[in-house]
Design a binder for these strands. Structure first.
Lengths: 74, 74
DNA sequence: ATGTGACTGTGAGTCCGTC
DNA sequence: TGACGGACTCACAGTCACA
């Protein structure tokens, strides 16, 4: 089975999709919320296992609800 | 402003509500998914900042979708 | 503009108790 | 049964140089 790496990838994909949907670069979004662009890059690729606090920051930067980052049914 | 501690509390509350709704003890749920009961206790209280992988495990143990843990509009 | 390797410090997560 | 403490390990947060 799977440990949650799938979910990490899915969340990352959601973040990327919503960011690109707003024509925002990783750099700009990262700067808005005071985080490192290289770290954001890895989260979007599902190569990291982010915490609730970090995802809350990202959701805030995107101007969306936290639960939208977990809405994989699109 | 807030760092995401609010979200931690809300997620913890959701977990607790869904667990109690299934008449499950912290110990049993923790054992089901191979996690520490003391950590589950603290997560439910919003005193810890859990990762996606851990939340995926908890959601799986509760038999619900990950996004349901972030559905605060109830 | 995005991705990767390597790195350090701190906190996520586990295990032992006690109340 | 659940809350809390201490001590511990390893992974995550966060940064930099470079591609």
């Amino acid at each position: 089975m799977n440990n949650g790496e799938d979910e990490c990838r899915k969340v990352g994909g959601r973040i990327r999709a919503m960011r690109e949907g707003q024509d925002l670069s990783q750099e700009k979004l990262a700067k808005m919320i005071g985080m490192d662009p290289t770290y954001l890059s890895r989260v979007e690729q599902g190569k990291r296992n982010p915490t609730v606090k970090l995802l809350a920051k990202i959701a805030h930067g995107l101007g969306v609800e936290l639960k939208e980052l977990f809405d994989f049914s699109l």
